[in-house]
């Protein structure tokens, strides 16, 4: 029963990882940018959420309404002011710049919020759970996070395939030059894509803050888990990302069941095994 419980908790945890991975996957899919500050932005979102929750006395769920739009604006600005410029220098420059940004953000948060760890008060959500059997219960909060991940992935999928702006984003991703000849403002479209990606980062950061405690250095591991979910699932496929998140979550939960210190390492080993055996991931998408 303990093992079944581990699998169930792992699947739910996988939802959180998939939520983290969406933004990474979208930015890479659209402009071939790997944002190494991804996890640190998520932690920043958690701190903002904390400020909103304690300042306005609203529940965690409502704080997303303030933090996610704010992060969309931040994403648009980061794209237009920083990433676009680095892309024009060279693709590898984006790695150096976002890595530098990651270090700056981490240390700025250390300076601003101290090294103490915090967690978001999620109120009744954290306490409540569905008790299926005496050993197996599903927390309301983790279920909501998993559902949020599925909703975000489905809406992203629909947006990219159906909406006019979504199709414009895909066209720009396929061939920026042709899109610009056809009258698309490439930089603006990239900015919109980054805004969407950052809004998902904000959701992931808030969900993470409700799940467990966070400190200024927590972003590194978030980035790595998101990346592992993307690669395990298959680069370029959003459904693959969800599957990758779940595989990673289950591996970690089962690993932790074997030995409490083995969880994260088990996730890394599964990632490396996928890289060795199925380098294109479990559900390889068409690379957009």
């Amino acid at each position: 029963m303990a093992w079944l419980n581990a699998v169930v908790q792992g699947i739910l945890l996988g939802g959180l990882y998939a939520l983290f991975a969406c933004g990474l996957s979208l930015l890479f899919g659209v402009m071939r940018v790997v944002n190494l500050a991804h996890g640190d932005f998520a932690v920043l979102a958690a701190y903002l959420g904390l400020a909103v929750i304690t300042g306005l006395h609203v529940p965690l769920l409502w704080s997303t309404l303030a933090v996610a739009p704010l992060f969309a604006v931040v994403g648009y600005l980061v794209q237009r002011l920083i990433i676009q410029r680095s892309l024009e220098v060279s693709p590898l420059t984006t790695l150096l710049v976002t890595f530098g940004l990651s270090v700056v953000l981490q240390n700025a948060m250390l300076e601003g919020f101290s090294a103490n760890s915090h967690s978001l008060p999620s109120g009744w959500l954290a306490a409540g759970s569905f008790r299926l059997t005496p050993q197996l219960s599903i927390g309301h909060f983790s279920l909501i996070v998993f559902a949020a991940a599925v909703v975000v992935i489905v809406s992203l999928q629909l947006f990219l395939s159906r909406a006019r702006l979504g199709r414009q984003i895909r066209a720009t991703a396929d061939d920026a030059e042709a899109a610009s000849i056809a009258g698309t403002d490439v930089r603006h479209v990239f900015g919109i894509a980054a805004a969407i990606a950052f809004a998902t980062v904000a959701l992931a950061g808030l969900a993470f803050g409700g799940y467990s405690s966070f400190d200024p250095g927590a972003g590194t591991q978030r980035l790595i888990f998101a990346f592992e979910a993307v690669v395990i699932g298959g680069v370029g496929s959003l459904w693959g990302t969800l599957l990758g998140g779940v595989v990673l979550g289950v591996s970690q939960a089962l690993g932790a069941q074997v030995d409490s210190g083995f969880g994260v390492l088990a996730g890394h080993l599964v990632f490396l095994a996928v890289l060795a055996i199925r380098p294109r991931g479990l559900l390889p998408g068409r690379v957009t």
Partner: peptide, 14 residues
Amino acid sequence: NEYFAIGTWVVAEA
């Protein structure tokens, strides 16, 4: 190239 950066990072963590 782009993912190589984080891939090497995972190896170091492992």
